[in-house]
Each structure stands twice: as structure tokens, then as C-alpha cells.
Design a protein around this nucleic acid. Sequence first.
DNA 1: GTCTATAACTCGATAGAC
DNA 2: GTCTATCGAGTTATAGAC
Lengths: 247, 247
Amino acid sequence: MSAKLALSTVIYRMTEKGDATVSQISPRPGRGRPRLLPGKIAANPRDQILAAAAELFVSRGYAGTTTREIADGAGLRQASIYYHFGSKEEILAALLERSVQARVEQAGKIEAGMDSVAPDAALYALAVSDMSALVAMPYNIGMLYRLPDVIASPVYDRYGHLRGELVAGYGRVAERAAAERVPAGGEPGLGDLLVQMVEGVISLRREDRIGSTTVATIASACLRLCGIAEDAIEQARETALTALAQT
Amino acid sequence: MSAKLALSTVIYRMTEKGDATVSQISPRPGRGRPRLLPGKIAANPRDQILAAAAELFVSRGYAGTTTREIADGAGLRQASIYYHFGSKEEILAALLERSVQARVEQAGKIEAGMDSVAPDAALYALAVSDMSALVAMPYNIGMLYRLPDVIASPVYDRYGHLRGELVAGYGRVAERAAAERVPAGGEPGLGDLLVQMVEGVISLRREDRIGSTTVATIASACLRLCGIAEDAIEQARETALTALAQT
DNA sequence: GTCTATAACTCGATAGAC
DNA sequence: GTCTATCGAGTTATAGAC
């Protein structure tokens, strides 16, 4: 449990620049015209805008969200957004990049370290860490990739292929875990089916239905989908969690 | 295969009024001002508008679609839409109603006739017929229920609970098929997991990836998720398809 | 029943003061 | 760095001609 949280917390961070200097964290007053609206001045207005936009895009869609609403959420005026971002699409691009890249990198790490653990444990670990990342993302921005107006947007093209890599990674790990137990080469591959299952947490989260057993239940279902027996699932779970704790 | 298609074709029909009179099907010329745009006059302009709207909503989102675009797709002028619908939201409501109601009714029928077939065959039949319905829906409108701006819309409230009934139905059928094989009472229930799997065809369809084996592959995965062994899955499949053919 | 024209409004983005 | 003010384009919906 703590391993899970630690992992996802490390992987996903809302603040992009790791080299935040003191002046950025606490900007001295008097730099620029003071904000009109109440509340404390943000440590990083760019991140405030991103957070507000993420929440709104996910709950009302990209096209359904206005820059004025984003500005309200971030505590500044509509026009002030354009000091930090060149356009509304640029805000979307920043969010898109963050939301997949973390998942793909994480999946790559687990796949790379697959030799040292049993294949079924590796799959369990992959599912758990990926779902933890999805759950830990601010405002459920994993959902952005499901929005048609986002997919239709030109900025999607720059990040869409990353999702394909994620599916392929799931496929490779699952194929090894399934061994010969399930018929291979079905039209939606194992990778597709598993990613579909795992991303169910996005809908559950939107409905406020993430409980303490949610991630474990779905991860077990993933192994079951590979034809792995119940006792083996339980064992893989133990192995995976201790492996994750060491990361 | 033919059973599958026949079923879904019957269940889902784009034309709502079964009592279409002759004058509606072939409106005599001179009724109203002639259309400006080329192409034949529609048998039913209301359905043309719905079809155009469905395609656009699904591909660009509800908020991202303008009434002008809908009108273009339907072959008339923007303002003419308002003779058939009172508002843009009314168009959405008409589409929402059609897209779930068919699935729920169909699921109810299969659940009702569950006594006469083996539980695992019933689940297979449910999955296959539901996916066939999703695939047969014009313009993939099953996706409407995934769009945040649709969910946020006030008209969604009128039809959202229907989807809950669908999940519950899946849960009951699956629980009987799974018997004691899988741990019961997980937080996302079996119904949630299965609906999540089944609705994967929506994404696959958007990516033009529905092949001849797609539905069968996913239906088998559903039984696998209930801990059913490979040979039993194959047998359930045969039973289900013949049962569906008789419907 | 469909058209043209337009009212009333909101959108994203820019210019320039502070 | 954030503000006010505003522009031009595009939005839904209505009014009335045909």
C-alpha cells in the first residue's frame, strides 16, 4: 500500500521544472501588477492554470471549456492566461504530454525489470503501478485521451503514438504471463483488453468509486484474463507488491 | 454470425416512428419552401439531422459541434433545424435515449430467458448481443455516454440511470456464471468489469479495428474473467450462438 | 418545410495601461 | 505579471418571407 502510493507520487508530479529556485517558489511582491482577485498569489501561476484547465477539460470537455472559466479557477483574469500560454491548445498540449508520458516510462521500467520476477507478478505490478498513476493524477486527466475533441485536435497527434506504445508494452508482458493458457492472436490483443480494464479506474474515479480494494480487484482481473488460476494470482500479488516496495 | 446481425438490426433502428404514413415517407413536392442545397429530399429530415448530429457529437464532442455543421451534414440550413428540434440539447436527448434503451431492453430479455440455458452461455449471449448492438449503432453513438460535456448536460440525468441498470444486469448474469470460481464482492463488481470490457468495442470501432473475430474474442474474455475454463468457454459459445439464432 | 436575415450573445486572442 | 478594454469571428436561436 505504501509502496503503491510512494511510487505513483514519485512518478507523477504536477510541477514540471525540478530546478525550482527560491525566487520562483516565493515571488517577491511588486513584480507585475497585483492580481485583482482574493486569495494568495500562486507559487506557480502556470501550474495553477494547468490544474484549473485539467479539472474543467475533464469535467466539461475541451471545447466545452472557456478560457474565462480556466482563469476563474486559477484566480486571475481571462487575458492574463496569455502571458503564460500562447493559446488554449497550448494548455491542452502541456496536459496531454504529462498524462501519458509518465505511464509509458513507468511501464517501460517494469518491462525492463521483468527478468528478475515471475511473468505473472510482473503483469500484476504493471497493472497496479499504472492504475496508481492514473488515480494519482490531478483531476483525473488520464481521461483526456478519451475525449473526441481532444483526439480530433492537432496537438493530439504529437502524443497519441505514446499510447500505442503503452498498449504494446502491456501486450508483451501479458503474453509472457499468459504463456499458452489463452488462445493467442485474437483481434483485440491481450494488450488492448488489459489497458481497457485498467483504464476503467478512470470512469470509477469520475464516479467517486475508488475504494481501498479497487486497484487490487482490477489487477487480479487482469491476471484472470490471462487464464491464471486463483491461487497463482494471489501469489503473484504478494510478489509484485514486495517488488514494487523495493523500487 | 447471421443470427448476431439479425438481432442487432432488429433491436436498433434509426427510424423511431413505426407508423410512418405514406405522406411522411414520400412528402409531396410543394410542401414548404424547397431546399436550397443539392441532393434528394430526405424521407425523414428529423432522422437526417439526428444522424448528422450523432456523427459530429461522437467525433468532435457535443460542445465542439455547431448547429451549422449539423445542418450541413443533414443538407439543410442552420435555422431549419429549429423546425424539427427546439434546441441543440433536444437533439442530444433524442440520441441519448436511443443509445441506451436498446441495450437495456435487450439485456433484460436475455436475463429473463436465462433459465433455459446454461449460465455461462447466457453471459456469452449477453455480451455478444450487446456488442453487436453497439457495433450496429449508427456513427458509434454508444460513445455519447463517455463524453464529459454530455454527462454534465442536464439532459443526461434523464437517461443516466438506465446505464446503471445495464451494469446491474451484467452483474447478475455474471455472478451466476462465475458461481464460486472468483472471489465475490470486489469493489468494482463483476458487472462493472464486464461492461468496461464490452464497451471496449466502442474505442475499437472509432479506430476502425472491428474485425470478424473482435466480438467473439471479447465475449470469450468476459467468460475468462469469470474464471471459466477454456473448453467450457468454447462450449458456451456454441450454445449461445444457437440460442441467439432462435431469437 | 425551408429559406434569408439578424438579434443577442460568447468565444479566443490582442493592445496597451499599470 | 496582471489588469482593463475591445476586436472580429462564430455561436444559438428567433422573425418573417416564400
